[in-house]
Amino acid sequence: MFEATLIYGLVNSVILALVALGFNLTFGISGVANFAYGAFYVTAGFLTWSGLNQLGLPFGVAAALAVLITALMGALMYRYLLLRLRGLVVSEVIATFGVGLALLELFRYLGFIGFEYTLPVMIDASVDIAGVVVDAQRILIVVVGASLAALLWVFTRHTRTGRAFRAIAQDEHTALTLGINTDRVATISVAFGAGYGAIAAVVILPLGTISVGEGYNVLVNALAVCIVGGLGSTVGVIVASLLIGYAQMITATYVDTHWMMIVSLVAILIILLIKPSGLFGQQKELEERI
């Protein structure tokens, strides 16, 4: 039992981290809290499903197309909607939440409800780790999660676009005086965030079914991880994912699986009460405020 909680807790943590990375990436760079994130996640799932079952594409092609289309949707949302609202934080949140709501409910309207909407696992096998049986899909999730985090780290430190990402994250005006097109960088950051979410969807969704409700769950989980970790902090995402991931798994094991989502919400509440900027957040003024 203990070994199982340990291993499945880790898998659950990586799932949370994978889900939160994209949201955090966009927020950290452009300051946009993309509340359509959960909807993009589900969209990628349905697009992959359609590619597989309606167009008869091989899984890899369907998944790649879904990731690209989702990323493009992110870019278009920024370019044609958010650009006009930049700086009005509440408007940005309402606008992205509206886009997400419209997308998710469109899927419901189109009849994407039911248990037939599943994605196949990529490798149908399982291994035995310390007496605990773990399926290959969960191991793949851990590998993909670690690779994406590593890729992001290399990208932001060793490529020109990545460095521009970090520059505008720290001071957008100064980046502008140095010839950096901050609108373009922000567009790319939203596209990257949406694309990361789509990759997460393609590897995580085979564990369950693709449903409209999952869009809302993913958004709440991503928000919980980012708020607890400190918005914009990659280290924060990793630490918060482990904390919430294990807390959820312990709750699921000893209480009930239905309580897992409550854990995320309680985590948000607790951190907002104790340290509103999050464990590794940069917005220290939240604590200095009287």
Binding site: R166, A167, Q170, D171, H173, T174, T177
Partner: peptide
């Protein structure tokens, strides 16, 4: 800028 605006973390 009148109020210096460096990339603070670098």
């Amino acid at each position: 800028f009148q109020m210096a605006k460096p990339f603070y973390q670098l």
